[in-house]
Design a protein around this nucleic acid. Structure first.
Lengths: 156, 156
DNA sequence: CCTGTTTAGTGCGTATACGCATGATATCGT
DNA sequence: ACGATATCATGCGTATACGCACTAAACAGG
């Protein structure tokens, strides 16, 4: 029934709320919510390529590049030419970047607490699991192909 | 364990995937994923104020305005001055807007199918429920207040 | 060794997504 | 009626989030 239409909107509402709150919260630290995501992603993978980084962030190479330019200026990350591939560049956190990330993890704790606080412990895991399944189903490319198949169907 | 850190990332990954797929899918209809959200929201509430519309879309008045300017040019929505409040403007779908929306609901079906297809029927409802709870907890304002409690005030 | 194809990064253009400041109006308290 | 204040829309500036086209370099065959 309407769960079908509600899911996309609920997903949107939840993500935008998280993004908004995070941005406001991290603003005093001089970084955006997305920059935090980038820094956190960088910290768990050494010498990543810009593309690799973008992929792990569920983001786009173009977007990541723009972010890296700013973070580079802020001195939080450092880009170097890839040792074996002249096309690529490796990205890594600077000492300042690592320090900043530590602060951000701590600063963001209240937000994570608030998110998790309204859920039963078991629900949190369920939610993550379901979200991943949804994300995977949408990433598996091939949505457009269904067009031809879904001929019937009331528009509502 | 890391569920706490994974939830935000899983939410981000799922939403961005949905947004990306939707944008690509709706592009051939001349609208963006967000414009679809706006049109759909408009259709279920007549003569909305721009602010009301923004609120229901979980979006921002500034953003909505920019979107309305484009949609107005496209002839999909019409803005009129509010009858009793000279500050406000009411927004409504045009005939073309209603027709377009019908198309978009049909065109978007494959995406909703794909999202729901990877979930058990009961899981879909659960997911919506959990997402709403998370969104509410984050919207209830007051996250920043925790700052005082997490003493360490090194803003860098 | 030399083409044809793929891949990494960049630059450009457009559409959100916000915060913030401003002008115009509405509202409320006295 | 009137001044203080809250509210609506707008404009401006910045940061994503992409798609697309382009350059350069890696790579696969022949």
């Amino acid at each position: 029934m309407s769960t079908e239409r509600d899911l996309p909107m609920a997903l949107r509402a939840a993500y935008l709320a998280l993004h908004r709150v995070s941005d406001a919260h991290f603003a005093s630290y001089g970084v955006t919510a997305d920059q935090f995501v980038l820094l956190a992603t960088l910290s768990q993978g050494q010498a990543l390529t810009q593309r690799e980084l973008a992929s792990r962030m569920s983001s786009d190479p173009s977007t990541v590049r723009a972010m890296l330019v700013l973070l580079d200026q802020s001195g939080l990350v450092k880009r170097q030419s890839h040792p074996s591939d002249a096309r690529a560049k490796t990205v890594a956190l600077t000492a300042a970047g690592k320090r900043k990330l530590q602060q951000l993890w701590k600063a963001g704790q209240p937000i994570r607490d608030k998110m998790l606080g309204c859920l039963e412990p078991s629900d949190a895991g369920t939610l993550v699991e379901l979200l991943r399944r949804v994300a995977n189903s949408l990433t598996e490319e091939g949505v457009a192909n269904f067009d031809a198949l879904t001929n019937s169907n009331s528009v509502n």
